[in-house]
Design a protein around this nucleic acid. Structure first.
Lengths: 121, 121
DNA sequence: ACTTTATTTCACCAATTGGTTATTTAATGA
DNA sequence: TCATTAAATAACCAATTGGTGAAATAAAGT
């Protein structure tokens, strides 16, 4: 599977997102990460494997613990991908901009009308 | 399933992302969307159902066609969620900043050292 | 050497996913 | 009315997913 797909897939589970949220506050052991959830340790191990497979966490050894660390780099790719579509979900704001521009123009009749033309569909 | 999860799940498939990419250039019928892929129509219909379920597309009727339209709103939520982690994947740039600041300080010994302290884990 | 603690692996299960072909529904056009 | 085109549904399949309990592994403490 491609990087983007495996990252999205890893992020599609609320348990895994909660794990990432906790890890954003600092590294943690598997048992620590498992605590908030009503699931078994093997289930947590599996979630961690998915996150590791997506490159979203890295692991090391420290005595009998296997601490996890957040590796947010793959999110950068996700962010870049999603930003492609920003203009789409901000269209309504564009219309608001256009509206406000209209109002301003109306108030100052000497000014020229500016075209925005960012809408593509 | 929660909105964020179903959005991430919908985006975790390259075929569905390609469909969204095409739809970002304008509305399209199912057959038009299916053309670039070596899969059957029912498979495309299923992908569209997943996208519709996540609120990423909307559909209407026009003669015997069922045109699809991109609805990027759910991506806004994804963007907001992912931005929470931006400081994490930009840490290395922070260290670069810090390094460059050090170099500058070394070159101009009269200047004070600036602390950045954006690292939280 | 034995026990405890932390974690993984194994073998299984039910539900979901992404795909198929064959059939049905819906609207248009001859 | 009948054929055509567009799309959805039905029934099925193999692979994946998220979970389980039981057993194995690894390091530390006694």
């Amino acid at each position: 599977m491609d990087r983007l797909s495996s990252t999205f897939a890893a992020l599609a589970d609320p348990t895994r997102r909660a794990i990432l949220a906790k890890l954003s506050l600092g590294g943690a052991s598997v048992t620590e990460l498992a605590k908030p959830f009503a699931i078994s340790m093997p289930a947590v191990t599996k979630h961690l494997k998915v996150l590791e497979g997506a490159g979203l966490i890295s692991r090391s050894r420290e005595a009998q613990f296997r601490p996890c660390k957040l590796e947010a780099a793959p999110m950068k790719e996700v962010s870049r991908w999603i930003e492609q579509y920003r203009w789409c979900w901000e269209e309504s704001f564009d219309r608001l901009d256009a509206y406000l521009a209209e109002v301003q123009t109306a108030e100052k009749p000497g000014k020229k009308k500016k075209k925005k033309a960012r809408k593509r569909h």
